[in-house]
């Protein structure tokens, strides 16, 4: 009994999962699977960044795609206009951090005072503005057709890109974990639980919310850059509302307020999506996979709000007690 209890509470299985993921490219020789896994890692970072807002601070943004899009376009434009060296890529990442930092700060200062309804609506509207901007500013973005570009030689090989993405996810996980465990992160969770009480304890709610929005924006921007690298192509779809809704879905299904749940959600959603796309050859209804996700999502919010990881934790707490 002691042994099983220690097994359940220890973190040995995280190491095991990482080992399995490192070993995966050596076992599987399917190119498609490799690309899918790479996308899962990148979407996991995007979903984790969304979890900082939704799960840790308790604010719903419908415009998170704007940071993803800014990241994707910035990297794409750097690699397309300047050259496709590694240096150019790294400089573009720096530019992404600066840009998303500024944008998330400005938007946070202006909109986070509002009540949750208005905030959700306004972020939806602002992301819509970015989409319009990307469509109209054809000189730079080439409109909704988008453009392809070359990527640094180092990342051209699918296997090395896989490892870079895996490392990216692990590093971002630890950084964000560090952030949510920090005193600032604790205040954010206090805001989620009870905003008024936190305020009367003397914390400036707005400041903390802006910090959360900036951290989420920066992480989302970086995941956008990586996304552009895997596709070697960018178009206005990166600003779409669907991108935000994907993150929302992944976070909810995996478990809000647990960074790990976002990763799980990302894997689950993208794997199921890939499966349904294959099924579309059998019956056209599977092409409308959004219906399935939407229905699952509504049911999850209504009956299953703690997500997979939340359920697991509940079950483990009960087990440890008994």
């Amino acid at each position: 009994m002691m042994l099983t209890r220690r097994l359940a509470s220890s973190r040995w299985w995280i190491g095991l999962v990482v080992l399995l993921l490192i070993g995966f490219p050596f076992v599987s020789d399917s190119r498609g699977a490799l690309i899918l896994m790479t996308q899962i890692f990148i979407y996991a970072v995007f979903a984790m960044s969304y979890d900082i807002l939704l799960g840790y601070t308790g604010i719903i943004s419908f415009g998170h795609a704007m940071f993803f899009g800014i990241g994707a376009y910035t990297t794409a434009i750097f690699l397309h206009r300047w050259d496709h060296s590694l240096l150019s890529f790294l400089v573009s990442l720096l530019a992404v951090l600066v840009l998303t930092g500024i944008v998330s700060y400005l938007i946070g200062v202006m909109t986070l005072r509002l009540k949750s309804h208005f905030y959700a609506m306004l972020t939806l509207a602002i992301a819509g503005l970015f989409l319009v901007l990307a469509e109209k500013w054809r000189d730079v973005t080439k409109g909704s057709d988008g453009f392809t570009f070359y990527i640094p030689d180092l990342l051209k090989d699918r296997t090395s890109l896989y490892f870079v993405a895996l490392a990216f996810m692990i590093i971002m996980f630890f950084l964000l974990k560090r952030f949510t465990d920090s005193p600032t992160g604790k205040v954010l969770q206090a805001i989620r639980e009870n905003e008024q009480r936190t305020e009367s304890l003397g914390y400036q709610i707005l400041h903390y919310k802006i910090i959360a929005s900036m951290v989420a924006g920066l992480a989302a921007g970086l995941s956008g850059s990586m996304y552009a690298i895997t596709l070697r192509f960018v178009n206005t779809a990166v600003f779409g509302t669907n991108v935000t809704l994907d993150a929302l879905l992944m976070t909810i299904i995996g478990g809000v307020g647990t960074l790990f749940g976002s990763m799980l959600g990302s894997a689950l959603i993208l794997l199921v999506h890939a499966g349904l796309t294959d099924l579309a050859k059998i019956h056209w209804i599977f092409e409308r996979w959004m219906i399935f996700f939407g229905a699952i999502y509504i049911l999850a919010v209504m009956f299953f709000p703690q997500g997979i990881v939340g359920m697991f934790r509940q079950w483990r707490a009960k087990w440890n007690k008994g």
Binding site: S116, H117, I252, M290, I291, F293, G294, I298, V301, M302
Partner: peptide
Amino acid sequence: NTMSQIQVTMGLLLVMNEC
């Protein structure tokens, strides 16, 4: 629950559009 409301109605929009 404000949070669930916003999320559920947004999901509804999605499903109804797809329908």
